[in-house]
Simulated assay, not measured.
Amino acid sequence: MTRKQRRLYFVVLGVLAVGAAAALVLTALRQDIVFFFSPSEILEAKVPTEGRRIRLGGLVEQGSVVKDGAIVRFRVTDGAHTLPVVYSGLLPDLFREGQGVVTEGKMGPDGEFQAAEVLAKHDENYMPKEVAESLKKTGHWQGESQPAK
């Protein structure tokens, strides 16, 4: 075996090793990826949600928060559609009706989103682009130029 052949052999082995490592990393990460969706995307069946952990974002609908001990029920809206959410645990201090919220969990068999985590946002500046655009289309956007309702 000449030096050129040996060098080519090591380069090919190196490329295969890097490719195999990249494939393993991507396979491991695929299980941990959590996608973000609005209520409209979920209810219009644009995404498969069966048994998947997802993030749901939008505004907490006015008058929808019902507390029963440690269990809290509320509805998340993007202006076009509304999705009921149930959460068991302590809510963030910034959580309130009319504010932005991101919940992480799974869709229940009854169509209710079962949140394992609730993240409250203090204004729409930190809301994902898709939800902000949906709120602007429906007239629910409370940006810098509009006072909070």
Rank of each mutant, 00 (worst) to 15 (best):
137 K>E: 12
136 K>Q: 09
34 V>S: 01
46 K>S: 06
8 L>C: 04
4 K>S: 12
98 G>D: 09
53 R>W: 15
13 L>P: 02
61 E>C: 07
120 A>P: 04
33 I>G: 08
36 F>E: 15
99 Q>W: 03
97 E>T: 00
5 Q>V: 04
83 L>H: 04
121 K>G: 03
22 A>W: 11
49 T>Q: 07
72 V>S: 01
118 V>C: 00
116 A>E: 07
61 E>Y: 09
6 R>F: 07
89 G>T: 04
39 P>E: 11
99 Q>V: 04
99 Q>H: 02
120 A>Y: 05
3 R>N: 08
126 Y>R: 13
127 M>T: 01
118 V>M: 04
87 Y>M: 06
140 H>R: 09
68 D>K: 14
8 L>F: 09
29 L>M: 07
75 R>M: 09
55 R>Y: 04
6 R>P: 00
67 K>N: 03
66 V>H: 12
56 L>H: 13
146 Q>I: 14
98 G>C: 03
77 T>I: 05
135 L>Q: 11
119 L>D: 05
78 D>S: 04
72 V>T: 09
146 Q>D: 03
87 Y>N: 02
114 Q>E: 10
103 T>M: 05
10 F>D: 06
102 V>K: 01
1 M>H: 04
129 K>Q: 10
81 H>R: 13
10 F>K: 01
55 R>E: 13
138 T>K: 12
14 G>S: 08
4 K>L: 10
103 T>D: 00
74 F>A: 02
93 D>V: 08
121 K>W: 01
78 D>G: 06
106 K>F: 15
140 H>I: 11
132 A>Q: 08
112 E>C: 01
41 E>L: 14
70 A>F: 09
51 G>T: 07
68 D>F: 00
112 E>T: 01
29 L>S: 07
88 S>Y: 11
87 Y>P: 02
116 A>R: 07
26 L>S: 11
82 T>G: 14
53 R>F: 15
129 K>D: 13
103 T>P: 00
118 V>H: 05
90 L>A: 11
102 V>A: 03
78 D>W: 04
